[in-house]
């Protein structure tokens, strides 16, 4: 049965699959209230068990795989397709908010019109470019994408450079021991990473004890000897935290608002 089909037979099968799965999903509503939470927990457990079993179960030494390994790719695909269906939830939220703005003539509703126009503009020209590829459609999409989206991305990202300056100006003052430490290490790293800074100590020998005082070597020392072990230790703690949260999620032991609500 699970073989690819063609022609009218395919459409029949598709319709059948839609119908059967639709009925199955709808009939979930018949599950009585007290069984719903256990059902959700079971689904979570089984989904997690796949990866856990795949990782822990012994493997055939020649293929380095066990009987679950081949299902990695299909599961990745299912995961991806299902997540794509969720995109509509976000778009729906955006659409309702801005349609409301426009309908109720809320302050700044013109911007909502612009937002929706831009959204449909890039979507339509993008699809036209794919399905009716011609220079005009290509160019139209390029105006939205290369002119608009790409440059907006680059501009907003580069704006961080300005903010980093005002943050540094404010934060790097030797007010406390901690602030002083922050200030000193940041300044040394900065000096060591540009040629003008490296020029300051270019006169020092490149080997021997004095070479340690060359700014690029100080920077290297800070990054590899002082900051690396600190970040490594943070990472070791974070790893345990993530593992512990995952275990709680997997076994539905997690508590907190979403997980405690009655369904």
């Amino acid at each position: 049965m699970f073989t690819p089909k063609t022609g009218p037979e395919l459409w029949l099968y598709i319709a059948g699959a839609l119908l059967v799965s639709g009925v199955l999903v709808t009939s979930l509503q018949l599950v009585p209230g007290r069984l719903r939470k256990p059902l959700i927990a079971l689904v979570t457990f089984l989904a997690g068990l796949f990866y856990i079993a795949e990782f822990f179960l012994p493997v055939d030494p020649t293929t380095r795989a066990n009987f679950l390994t081949d299902y990695r790719a299909p599961i990745a695909q299912v995961n991806q397709v299902l997540l794509s269906f969720a995109v509509g939830v976000g778009v729906y939220s955006l659409l309702t908010l801005h349609t409301k703005n426009i309908v109720r003539r809320r302050q700044g509703w013109g911007f909502s019109v612009l937002l929706l126009a831009a959204m449909f503009g890039i979507l339509v020209t993008g699809l036209l470019k794919e399905y009716r590829p011609n220079p005009i459609n290509q160019a139209a999409f390029s105006l939205f994408f290369d002119g608009g989206l790409k440059s907006l991305d680059a501009a907003m990202f580069s704006i961080v450079a300005f903010y980093i300056v005002s943050a540094a100006y404010r934060a790097f003052r030797a007010r406390s021991v901690e602030a002083t430490i922050l200030l000193v290490s940041a300044s040394l790293v900065m000096l060591g990473q540009v040629s003008l800074g490296q020029g300051l100590t270019a006169g020092l020998p490149t080997s021997g004890f004095l070479s340690n005082l060359r700014v690029e070597n100080i920077r290297e020392w800070i990054l590899t000897r002082a900051s690396t072990p600190a970040l490594l230790a943070v990472e070791l703690g974070l790893g345990l935290g993530a593992l512990s949260t995952s275990i709680r999620l997997w076994l539905s032991l997690e508590r907190g608002s979403y997980f405690e609500k009655d369904v």
Binding site: V87, G88, S93, Y258
Partner: peptide
């Protein structure tokens, strides 16, 4: 403000529950 569309339903339920509590 939310970035991942798929998280909207989870966030909605979580916030509703938080306001109830």
């Amino acid at each position: 403000p939310v970035r991942i569309p798929a998280l909207m339903p989870v966030a909605e339920e979580a916030l509703r529950e938080a306001y109830t509590r």
